[in-house]
Design a protein around this nucleic acid. Structure first.
Length: 645
DNA sequence: CTAGGGTTAG
């Protein structure tokens, strides 16, 4: 009674037109419906498979409520939420209703728009219109989502037109947001932008959709501009920006923004962490690795409990040079999925630990987790990095037959790399020619790379010509070909390639290496760059190191210099390679006996590789270098790659 | 009903 009077007084003070209906006595059927409805909601809440929903449906039928759109809509929504395939059961449930209302139609359309067949949702919309049922705003969000799923811009535009012609739906916030997402996913950012600009009201979701769109096409300035203008930033918006920087190879900006995010008191969840962890992985610095690991643990999102964070951490530790730490994370995870296994296998492969990669693969196939295309990339590169040709051939043959994974162009690239690196250049070339799918840049690039190792200028030329067509702006290809010509002493051809590059306005990416000081500060060195405050010290130390190495038989490898200059000049140029500067600086600033970790943006040159080997021996230092391809662990004068790279 | 995510290659 008390509760009622409270309810009463509250309603009285609110809008009159609404509360008049409240006191109309419910019909018996209405009361029964209300009772059922509240019972249903609680029962449905606890449903976790579709047989329970079938029981609820059977109950409704017994009560003679099988035609009630309202209740059936709830059932359909729950079925959709439980990922029950639309056919046969949910569809059957709908088909039994003679006069479905807008909401029931929409629930059905939405089911198809989420689980497919997507086109069916469009067909259902047509039927709905034919029956004269008026759509509601979320009928359109579902339809637009279906168009997004199949990337069908034509249909999407038609639906967009419908939202306007039927009347006013284009100004609905949800419809607008969904439209932005559709145009963006279909690659028409300008259309998404126009929807955004014309929306009568926007929320943080509209802004975030557009911010993500800009980050995905690499325009971080535009994204940042929008982000600054966004009045209220929530966790998702912050995360979109952090991840955007990370995905656009701007790890420092990502970390800086993450700090700002935390300063603003915004929560961090697993998605945010994944973006930050990936930024740390790019930096390759141990200090950041432990830093973010601690943050994850403190947030209760450590690898033991969170498989997504765990997989990202595995990748990060591998890329920071600590496969062992990565493996510790892997072993400590309570749940592992294909991402965790693949990340770990790829990690082993990067470090040349082929046996470990193969061992983990065989453990994986004993579990429920099925290997996917990335897993096979991992095991194939593992074989490739140590020259296990036979093993790789077998894997390649079984991936389709045993595991049902169709070899993609990427897998062919791995095979070409494996064969070519091991010296089977002709066989690799034949494999490319026999491919059932069109070879992409990766395939020809692998062949070109193998030609560089084995000095085959003919196949190199063929590969390069394909590459120039496929990747006209791929600067690396021109450099590689020119280097191959240079090693063969074909200076005329070298200048031809150089001319071609000039004509296209392409410039070589500067080589860049960085090394981490004890305090976690990262020092960056560019090739030939002598602007570092300690440059003269570095130069002296490098000269001394090279002098000592020469006493042990080191000879500068002049063929690593691809310019036609005097030998003295070549020697001088070799000394300016960024990885050598980073190495010497690392030795200057870290204590004796500690490991030096260097990251390089391009492939390390042979001469630097030799110097690293020698330095690890005479300076008694463990040196770990990550170049753009893989890791080299130098210890006691030898490298983990066995000079096979 | 609408927005952010993990493993990939020369």
């Amino acid at each position: 009674m008390f509760a009622f009077s409270r309810h009463f007084s509250r309603r009285r003070s609110s809008i009159f037109s609404e509360h008049q209906q409240i006191f109309v006595p419910f019909s018996e059927q209405q009361q029964q419906r209300n009772l059922l409805e509240s019972r249903l909601v609680s029962v449905l809440h606890g449903c976790n498979d579709h047989n329970q929903i079938k029981q609820v449906h059977a109950h409704l039928l017994r009560k003679g409520l099988g035609q009630c759109s309202f209740l059936l809509t709830k059932l359909l929504r729950m079925l959709t939420k439980l990922n029950v395939p639309m056919e046969p059961y949910p569809r059957l449930l709908f088909d039994q209703v003679q006069q479905p209302n807008s909401f029931l139609w929409t629930a059905l359309i939405r089911g198809y728009s989420l689980h497919g067949p997507f086109i069916e949702s469009i067909l259902l919309y047509n039927s709905m219109r034919l029956e004269g049922t008026r759509p509601v705003s979320f009928t359109f969000t579902a339809l637009i989502k279906a168009c997004t799923a199949i990337l069908n811009l034509d249909l999407g535009r038609q639906i967009h037109a419908q939202t306007i012609s039927i009347g006013g739906f284009e100004s609905d916030l949800y419809v607008g947001n969904t439209l932005i997402d559709m145009y963006v996913k279909c690659g028409i950012l300008e259309c998404g932008r126009r929807v955004f600009d014309e929306m009568p009201e926007r929320d943080v979701i509209s802004w975030t959709s557009l911010i993500v769109a800009y980050t995905k096409c690499g325009d971080m300035e535009a994204a940042a501009g929008l982000f600054d203008d966004l009045p209220v930033k929530d966790m998702v918006a912050w995360t979109a920006m952090v991840t955007g920087y990370s995905q656009n190879a701007k790890p420092r900006e990502a970390l800086r923004l993450f700090e700002r995010m935390r300063d603003s008191g915004v929560e961090t969840d697993e998605v945010t962490l994944v973006g930050v962890i990936s930024a740390c992985a790019q930096l390759g610095a141990a200090k950041y690795a432990t830093w973010i690991r601690d943050i994850a643990e403190q947030a209760g999102l450590g690898p033991a409990t969170n498989v997504v964070v765990g997989s990202a951490l595995i990748d990060m530790y591998s890329k920071c040079g600590s496969v062992e730490e990565a493996y510790q994370v892997f072993k400590g995870m309570n749940e592992r999925n294909v991402f965790s296994y693949s990340a770990m296998i790829v990690g082993f492969a990067m470090h040349g630990r082929a046996e470990a990669a193969m061992q983990l693969f065989s453990e994986m196939v004993e579990t429920e987790t099925r290997p996917n295309r990335v897993t096979f990339i991992g095991v194939l590169t593992a074989c490739s990095h140590v020259g296990m040709v036979e093993q790789g051939r077998r894997l390649f043959a079984t991936m389709k037959e045993v595991y049902g994974v169709l070899p993609s162009a990427d897998h062919y690239a791995c095979m070409v790399d494996l064969l070519g690196r091991a010296g089977h250049l002709e066989e690799a070339h034949e494999l490319v020619k026999s491919m059932p799918i069109e070879p992409h840049g990766g395939v020809w690039g692998a062949l070109l790379g193998a030609c560089r190792i084995h000095g085959n200028a003919d196949i190199a030329e063929t590969s390069a010509n394909h590459l120039f067509e496929l990747e006209p702006n791929g600067i690396g290809n021109y450099i590689l070909l020119s280097n191959i010509y240079a090693s063969a002493g074909k200076w005329d051809d070298v200048s031809k390639v150089r001319k071609l590059m000039r004509k296209k306005g392409l410039r070589k990416n500067p080589g860049c290496s960085w090394v981490e000081a004890k305090d976690g500060v990262i020092h960056e060195f560019f090739a030939g760059d002598m602007t570092h405050p300690k440059s003269s010290e570095i130069k002296l130390a490098l000269e001394e190191l090279l002098h000592r190495l020469k006493l042990h038989g080191y000879k500068p490898n002049l063929s690593c210099v691809v310019y036609d200059v005097s030998d003295e000049e070549k020697q001088r140029l070799l000394m300016t390679h960024s990885e050598k500067l980073a190495l010497v600086f690392g030795m200057l600033i870290t204590s004796d006996g500690s490991t030096i970790r260097i990251v390089k943006n391009l492939r390390m040159c042979e001469d630097c590789h030799t110097v690293m080997c020698g330095a690890s021996g005479i300076m008694r230092r463990e040196i770990i270098v990550r170049d753009n391809m893989r890791f080299h662990h130098f210890h006691d004068g030898i490298c983990s790659c066995g000079n096979f790279w």
